[in-house]
């Protein structure tokens, strides 16, 4: 079904004002033309559900930088998060595997997940760091969302994926006139999607597809070379939509026990250091390499898929301007050349 874009926007505003649901949308960052961050909807913020991924990962909305995990705060308000892009949707699906499984449930995460409706939207532009296509990703979602919106001229084509999505759709249907989508609308969407895929492919054509074995290579000198500029600040892991390493703090008073979890970063020196002083990765290049191995080897072993969704945020956030794609490229090329010369 098709809904007028302006109608959908008023749907969001109306819900937001009804006070029992909170709407979060990509909101324009001050002084920029196309950089958005997740923010609560209000009358003054300028939002757009198109473009490409936000500056901040959707992780921050479900797995907060700092929150109490024992006891967990109750009375979570219902939320709609609109404008989540395909890369972030993939990262949420990965976090679901990590944080809600048979062995373990992170209650704080689950509460926020359960109380949220996810509305994804197709990418209509790309950022210079975007590279989902190198990881079998697409600039539109295929699963995991509740509703997806694909723009066609002044309309959105609505795709329903879940019961929660159906619930929202019924709400929309009650208030707004919807049009049936004809084949021409599907064709137009498919054309737009292909155009974005093509842009991504061209932008990333010099990069090889990912090869985990190459990254696992024991030749460490090349990692030393690649990490020379790294200052070990941890921005890349904090902004990564799939990094969920945590530290626990005890904020208890007297006989109460309160556990607060915050993000940690494997790039920091003290990360894996034990009380006796031993550390498995005392050198910067070892910690630098760990992030790549975690994404492409360890997470793949644990969750059946790599921990990189190709959003490029680590590249964008890096103070030393290290491009994630180039590092993998250089490591792969070097290892391949070494192998050939032997």
């Amino acid at each position: 079904m098709l809904i007028k874009i302006s109608d959908f926007h008023s749907f969001l505003y109306n819900l937001n004002e009804s006070n029992n649901i909170e709407v979060v949308i990509p909101s324009l960052a001050n002084g920029t033309e196309n950089r958005f961050f997740f923010n609560k909807l209000n009358s003054s913020n300028n939002f757009d559900l198109g473009f490409f991924r936000t500056i901040d990962p959707s992780k921050v909305l479900f797995y907060q930088p700092r929150e109490s995990v024992f006891p967990v705060s109750t009375g979570t308000i219902k939320r709609i998060i609109a404008g989540i892009k395909s890369c972030d949707m993939k990262s949420i699906q990965l976090l679901d595997k990590a944080l809600i499984n048979n062995d373990f449930v992170d209650s704080a995460y689950k509460n926020l997940r359960d109380s949220t409706y996810i509305i994804t939207t197709d990418c209509t532009e790309i950022h210079s760091s975007c590279h989902c296509t190198l990881l079998d990703g697409k600039p539109f979602t295929e699963s995991g969302f509740d509703l997806n919106l694909s723009p066609v001229e002044d309309y959105y084509l609505i795709t329903i994926e879940s019961d929660k999505g159906r619930e929202l759709f019924e709400l929309i249907k009650k208030k707004y006139g919807l049009l049936d989508a004809h084949e021409s609308a599907y064709l137009e969407i498919s054309k737009q999607r292909n155009k974005i895929i093509e842009k991504l492919v061209i932008q990333n054509e010099k990069f090889l597809p990912r090869n985990n074995d190459v990254l696992r290579s024991k030749d460490l000198s090349i990692w030393n070379e690649e990490s020379k500029e790294c200052i070990g600040c941890g921005a890349c892991t904090n902004i990564c939509p799939t990094c969920y390493c945590l530290i626990l703090n005890d904020e208890s008073v007297e006989k109460e026990f309160i556990k607060v979890r915050s993000y940690d970063s494997c790039q920091l020196h003290g990360y894996a250091k034990v009380a006796g002083g031993a550390s498995p990765r005392p050198k910067m290049y070892e910690r630098f390499r760990n992030r790549y191995l975690c994404k492409f080897d360890y997470m793949k072993k644990n969750f059946g898929e790599p921990g990189c969704v190709g959003c490029g945020r680590c590249t964008e956030a890096c103070a030393a301007k290290i491009d994630f794609r180039e590092v993998i490229q250089n490591i792969s090329m070097n290892t391949l050349t070494t192998k050939q010369s032997i």
Binding site: A98, L99, D103, F104, D106, Y244, C245, L246, I247, L248, D264, C266, Y271, A272, K273, V274, G276, A278, P280, C294, D297, Y298, K301, N302
Partner: peptide
């Protein structure tokens, strides 16, 4: 094995030994 085991159930990832 002794590693930095913060959480105890494979969430905080500090104690990773390879996979």
């Amino acid at each position: 094995m002794e590693k930095k085991m913060y959480c105890g159930f494979g969430q905080c990832r500090h104690c990773v030994i390879g996979g």
